[in-house]
């Protein structure tokens, strides 16, 4: 382990940003679960860890007040305007939120499947996103709902769609002196159905061979107004399958259409061979799982 590691616990976003911009090689952490493993295995050797865990107002699910310790922002954020997640919200917070389960089932499913309960109690949604693993479950779930990231930096705050955030494995558009502050998810609208399938060998405490999410929003006549298909471990980063979405949008949703979306998603997937699974198998399973998640979402009934 790097002997010179420092561990800093700023009390505000401003203090955290100032530490990150003045200490070269400083890394922000929240739960630190993944970063700590990386340090122990000597994969990373940051000069300092800047813990975001003690900054107030970074851990909340608005408007679900049950896990909310956030003051001053409740006004203007209602059930009608989607959800605002503090970046330091843990996967366990989402798992325990009946409100999230009702309103954003795919995000709830994705967060509930990360690691073990012990890890979910500590690991944060913001950390899962910034860690930018190709298998980041919460990101695959959030992509379905057009989530936007609120990023704080030296020049103030900026917003970036989650779909534009990832560059490659472990690489994002987050600057070295920036932190992810909030995840904004718009109201997906009535008649929205979504599901996330984490394809694993074991039932729990497993990284996915593949993560597949689908969301459809139907109009009053039952036509697909908006469709989102997201894939994890199917490319070097969590991605949307824009091609499959195009197949679904504007059409009457049927089992055949869902199957066609699966074919198109599979044909266009940038699958890779890794030790966890071979590319051909992943492609085959995208074809199988896309229609399956659409069916499981309840949109077909």
């Amino acid at each position: 382990m790097a002997a010179a590691l420092d561990y800093l616990r700023p009390a505000s976003v401003a203090e955290a940003l100032s530490l990150l911009s003045t200490i070269e090689g400083a890394q922000p952490v929240a739960g630190a679960t993944d970063v700590w493993v990386g340090i122990r295995s000597k994969k990373h050797s940051p000069k300092a860890l800047v813990s975001l865990k003690n900054i107030p107002n970074l851990r909340f699910i608005l408007p679900d007040r049950e896990t909310d310790a956030y003051e001053g922002r409740a006004e203007g954020v209602t059930g009608d305007s989607g959800v605002l997640l503090g970046a330091a919200t843990t996967h366990g917070d989402v798992e325990d939120s009946a409100w999230m389960k009702t309103h954003f089932p795919a995000v709830h499913q994705a967060c509930s499947g990360v690691g073990s309960r012990q890890v979910r109690n500590v690991a944060t949604v913001g950390g899962n996103i910034c860690n930018a693993a190709p298998c980041a479950d919460s990101a695959v779930g959030l992509l379905l709902y057009d989530a936007t990231l609120v990023i704080a930096g030296p020049a103030g705050e900026r917003e970036l769609p989650l779909s534009e955030f990832f560059v490659g494995p472990g690489e994002t558009r987050l600057g070295p002196a920036e932190i992810l502050k909030e995840v904004k998810v718009p109201n997906p609208g009535p008649r929205t159905y979504a599901w996330y399938w984490k394809h694993t060998r074991r039932k729990g405490v497993e990284l996915p061979l593949l993560g597949v999410g689908a969301r459809v929003t139907l109009d009053a006549d039952g036509m697909v107004e908006k469709a989102r298909v997201s894939l994890g471990v199917c490319a070097p980063m969590p991605t949307r399958s824009y091609e499959a979405e195009k197949v679904l949008e504007g059409q009457k949703l049927t089992a055949e259409l869902a199957a066609e979306a699966g074919e198109v998603a599979a044909a266009n997937a940038l699958v890779r061979d890794t030790w966890r699974g071979r590319g051909w198998y992943r492609r085959e399973m995208v074809r199988v799982l896309v229609p399956r998640v659409i069916k499981l979402s309840g949109a077909l009934s």
């Binding site: 630190a32 679960t33 890890v119």
Partner: peptide, 15 residues
């Protein structure tokens, strides 16, 4: 109040 894996919990964070 919550279960954690103490091998991944930075000691400084226990403060």
């Amino acid at each position: 109040g919550v279960a954690v894996t103490s091998c991944l919990y930075p000691a400084c964070e226990a403060d």
